[in-house]
């Protein structure tokens, strides 16, 4: 559509511009995603299968991450939890991003009452700590994966709307937007085809750290008992289950916790690499 199909040489040129942090970030994330996808082939155990005879085993050759108090293999559960956490992280990041960027960019382009009302709504939402707002909404709706989605969709778009509006205010004064208006293009075309591709970069970069924060949010909610319901493998819930056994079995909380850290590092590196890759357009662009 807006970019021509990448010829092999163009692809090679693109790859040549990737920074080491982008490389490592993409590699780590690909590794994690593949581990989640191929979990059934990577481990002989069932993530839900309980085995009281093998409860609270320390990590060894049979159970790489040890077992929990119900005798479930923690390595298996950590792998299957990749699916849960990345899927929830993806939706809780990119649905709000879509809503927020569209609303914010439109407000920045048009201004007027829509802009004024939207900004006051955002100010109000951002006046509360994010987690507190989510917990309040979940307290009303009740716990569960579906309600986490609803709660985050209601609140998460505000940061993106603010970012996109700020970028749009800069962009809308540029002559190419005026030229599009002079040519009589409708607002939807100006917004989607001309403005959005030029204002979305900062939101994409921000979404990488937001992704990490959302995984931590889901883990935190599960830790508090408001998140993913019990038997489903989820890193935060696993950390919470392990807290009663910290003295005897350190691995129950620690190793799933390290999975969260690893995912966080991968996304942070990816975000850092994207900042440089997307940012250098502005430098060479002038």
């Amino acid at each position: 559509m807006t970019t021509t199909t990448l010829a092999p040489s163009a692809l090679r040129a693109e790859v040549a511009r990737w920074s080491p942090s982008l490389w490592i970030g993409i590699g780590l994330l690909a590794f994690i995603v593949l581990a989640g996808l191929f979990a059934p082939w990577l481990t002989p155990y069932d993530p839900l299968r309980q085995d009281y005879g093998a409860a609270l085993r320390a990590p060894d050759a049979a159970h790489w991450f040890g077992t929990d108090s119900l005798g479930r293999d923690l390595f298996t559960r950590s792998l299957y939890a990749i699916r849960t956490d990345l899927v929830i992280g993806f939706w809780t990041t990119y649905v709000p991003m879509l809503i927020g960027v569209l609303l914010g960019a439109y407000a920045g382009l048009k201004g007027g009452w829509f802009d004024a009302v939207l900004m006051r709504v955002i100010d109000t939402a951002l006046a509360f700590p994010f987690l507190v707002l989510i917990i309040v909404i979940l307290a009303i709706l009740g716990p569960g994966t579906q309600n986490i989605y609803i709660a985050v969709f209601l609140v998460g778009w505000t940061m993106y709307a603010r970012l996109a509006r700020a970028e749009m205010l800069v962009e809308s004064g540029k002559d190419y937007i005026l030229a599009a208006r002079t040519l009589g293009f409708p607002t939807a075309r100006i917004l989607l085809r001309h403005a959005l591709p030029n204002v979305i970069n900062s939101s994409i970069v921000f979404s990488m750290s937001d992704f990490v924060l959302n995984i931590l949010l889901v883990s935190g909610l599960s830790f508090l008992g408001l998140g993913v319901p019990a038997p489903t493998p989820e890193w935060g819930a696993m950390v919470a289950e392990g807290k009663d056994f910290m003295q005897q079995a350190w691995w129950i909380s620690t190793l799933p916790g390290l999975m969260i850290v690893l995912t966080g590092v991968a996304l942070a590196l990816l975000g850092d690499g994207l900042t440089h890759r997307l940012g250098d357009r502005h430098v060479t662009g002038h």
Binding site: T2, T3, T4, K174, D175, Y176, L178, A179, A180, T182, L183, G184, H194, P197, N198, R281, G285, H286
Partner: peptide
């Protein structure tokens, strides 16, 4: 009017969409 009146802008660096050929 949009077809009959057109405008050429001052700054050739900002008057073209940077992402379009």
């Amino acid at each position: 009017l949009r077809r009959e009146m057109q405008m050429v802008f001052q700054d050739p660096y900002s008057s073209l969409n940077p992402r379009l050929t």
